[in-house]
Every structure is written in structure tokens, then in C-alpha cells.
Design a protein around this nucleic acid. Structure first.
Lengths: 207, 207
DNA sequence: TCACATATGTTAGAACTTCTAACAATGGCA
DNA sequence: TGCCATTGTTAGAAGTTCTAACATATGTGA
């Protein structure tokens, strides 16, 4: 757990202290909270300052600009995203249909649980996308899927076929995630049974 | 074609005239242009005004706020999106694998050609998503797919199975579109042959 | 232990936003 | 022709990001 005190409303601040304790962490957490509340584009530095209880100039001791605050939340989000994916397959036989289904389900669940961060990971990274931090973390997450798909066919390496099938699976759960969090499904009055949709799709992709 | 003069740089303005001609249309076009250039979140009313050559207060005679300007672009975009989808299957046998492939390809192509508008359609609509304008247009686009999938199995109505398969196809091309425009594919060094990816997936979904 | 350099807060303010109010020009219609 | 609704303008309020100049803790070496 990297975010030990996720639940706290007011972020730790030794009351009355001129210096804050760990303002950087507090601001990251405030930013994350606001990104979920209002969406990544509606997030404002001032709001984060109000939440953390500091002046609007304070963040600039820790971040070069607004973008970098969002970036910090994105990196933290990608780390947690990885943990979620890794945990999803833990204990399941490598390459089993079960494991691959669990990955898909975990992907969509993460998006649904943290749509703001999810959007940040896939949208904002556009901005900072060339950074190695992003690429590395992305690879780490995708690696979990690649490994499972390879395992499914009894391969130990990532060959052409594995890549194609893994990418198809990714594409599918990615689209599903966005349609859900953008509320297109409810808008179009499509009722989605996640287990069924993901199960069917992954079976077909792997066949 | 609803956007007759897409290519013009400076939007029509009878030079020297106090009144502008059709400022509303000019602003919509300026907004669309800027949304593509900078992304929907970075778009600013002031920029649009500069582009259209009017004062920053002028838009408020035609739109209630910034959001409504983006909304206008979104609605126009959805109309064009529909036309693109409709045109994609024109001349192809209803329900043929060819037609369904063409739909998928047109979907992704639209996203790639107008990522800003595409994002607007699926992201912003969040904000104005409950509006009937959005829902109607959405249904109209989705209807094209539903009809083709129904045709594929020789149905005339949209039954459970058709819905499930159509939704799977949608999900897939939707995810593919976002991964492409968010540059995740290049970032992860995945090279994508669109025809192959879409072809394989749609074959599997329909099987 | 003190003294001061560095880290990390603050306030003030510049430059930019969105949006409103009050004013002005235009053009269509009675 | 003259009036007035429409659609522009300028001025400015309130809020934004970010910088500069100032202030206060903190911790390290003398």
C-alpha cells in the first residue's frame, strides 16, 4: 500500500506549524481526490491548496506546474494499477482462462473505481507520454497480460501470435472501460453483464 | 457536407462590418479547429475569439458559456460521424463481413482523423450526456452497426444475441481508437496493422 | 549550543481566464 | 423613414496559474 491514509479527509498537517510535514504527499493526495471528484480537466491547483490548507504558491516548491501535479498522481496511479493487475492473477494457474479473465475484470474494475486516474493514465500521458516513467510503468502492466497470454499457449517467450492476441484483449477491455465510465452504456440503454461480456470476448479472442 | 468551407483559414467575415455575417458558425468552426489543435481541455474561448476576429464577449450572444461552444462542436461532430458510418456501408451487402469490417475501419479512421472531436463525443458528452440531442445522435450511429449485425445473421429485428455481438464490436473498435489516438501503441512499441486487427477481431466476434 | 544556509512556507501581484453589464451600431420591418 | 431587436463593443469583476520577494523553520558544522 503506497497510499496508507487514503481515507483521511483532512490531509495530515501538524496544526499551527509553519512547515507542513509532508506537503508534497498531501498535495498529491488532494490532487487525486479532486481529479476523481471533478475530472482531470476541472482540477485546479487552488482547489488542491484549499484542501491541503496552504497558500496557492506553496505547491510550486514541490512541482514545477499544475501539469506536474497531475503527473505525480498519474505515476502513483500506474503503480497501483500494476499492483491490482498483479494481484488479480495471483494464485491462479499461469495462462489459465480464469487468470486471463481475472485480468480483464481487474482492468475494468480499476477504471470504474478510479475513472479520474484512469483517464489521467490514458489521456494525460499524451502530454508527458514520451517520459520513460510512463513507458516503463506501461510496459510493466502490459507485461502481466503478455505473460498470461503466452502461458495460455504454453510459450515462454512473447511471439507474434501472443502479441496480437494480447493486444486484442487489451483493446477490448480498454474500450469497455471507457464506454462504462463515459456512461455510454447507460445512455444507449445497453445493459452490460461484465462477467459475461469479458468472459465471452476473452474466450473468442483466445480461440 | 455540413461544413462546406472546412479549409478556410480565416473564417468568413465581411471586412469592416460591425456585424459579422454568421458569427455563430464561425465560432463553431474556430472551436473545432482549436479542439483539434490543442485538445478539448486546452481550448479557450479567447483563442476562438482571436481566430474569428471578434471581442471575447461576442460568443456570449450565441452561446451561454464555453461548455455550450464545445457542445455545438460535439453535435456537429456526431452528425458527421453518422454520415461517415452510413457511407462506409453504402453499396456493401447488408450484414456482410465486408460491411461490418468497413464500419469498424470507418470508426477508427474517424477517431484518427479527428481525435479532438472524437474525444469530445465520448468524453465531454459526460457533461451534457443526459441531453436528448446526444442520446438521439448516439442511437443513430449505433443503429447502423446494430442493423448490419442483425443482417449478418439474417434477422430483421435486434435480438439479444445481436445486441451482445454489436456491443462487443463497438467495445473493440472503441478501445482500439483510444489506444491509437492516445499513442499507447507507439509508446508500447506495438505495431498495429489496422486491417488485420479489425478483420480478425470482427471475424471472431461474429463467429 | 549557536549561527546560519537551505528548505519550505507566506503575501503581493502580473498575466491570463470566463463571463456580465452597460453601451453602440446595424439592419429589417411597420 | 424611424424604431427597436439583434449582435457587436469596451470595461471590469472574480477566478486561474505562476513568479518574486520576503519570512520562518530545520538541521548541520564550528
Amino acid at each position: 500500500m503506497q497510499q496508507a491514509d487514503r481515507k483521511q479527509k483532512k490531509v495530515s498537517a501538524r496544526r499551527g506549524a509553519y512547515h507542513h510535514g509532508d506537503l508534497r504527499a498531501s498535495l498529491v493526495e488532494a490532487t487525486r481526490q479532486l481529479v476523481e471528484e471533478k475530472g482531470p480537466d476541472r482540477f485546479s491547483v487552488s482547489d488542491a491548496c484549499r484542501l491541503a490548507g496552504v497558500s496557492t504558491a506553496a505547491p510550486y516548491r514541490h512541482f514545477s506546474d499544475r501539469e506536474e501535479m497531475l503527473f505525480a498522481v498519474t505515476m502513483d496511479g500506474m503503480d497501483r494499477f500494476y499492483e491490482v493487475m498483479r494481484d488479480a492473477v495471483e494464485g491462479l494457474p499461469r495462462g489459465s482462462a480464469e487468470a486471463i479473465f481475472a485480468l480483464g475484470r481487474a482492468y475494468v474494475d480499476f477504471a470504474a473505481a478510479e475513472p479520474g486516474v484512469f483517464r489521467l493514465i490514458f489521456g494525460l500521458a499524451q502530454r508527458q507520454g514520451k517520459s520513460d516513467d510512463v513507458r516503463e510503468r506501461g510496459m510493466r502492466v502490459y507485461g502481466v497480460l503478455l505473460d498470461q497470454v503466452a502461458g495460455h499457449y504454453g510459450y515462454d517467450d512473447i511471439n507474434q501470435d501472443v502479441q496480437a492476441r494480447a493486444f486484442s484483449l487489451w483493446t477490448f477491455v480498454h474500450g469497455l472501460s471507457f464506454l462504462l465510465i463515459d456512461e455510454k452504456t447507460s445512455q444507449m440503454e445497453i445493459d452490460v453483464n461484465l462477467d459475461e461480456v469479458i468472459g465471452t470476448a476473452s474466450r473468442r479472442m483466445l480461440a
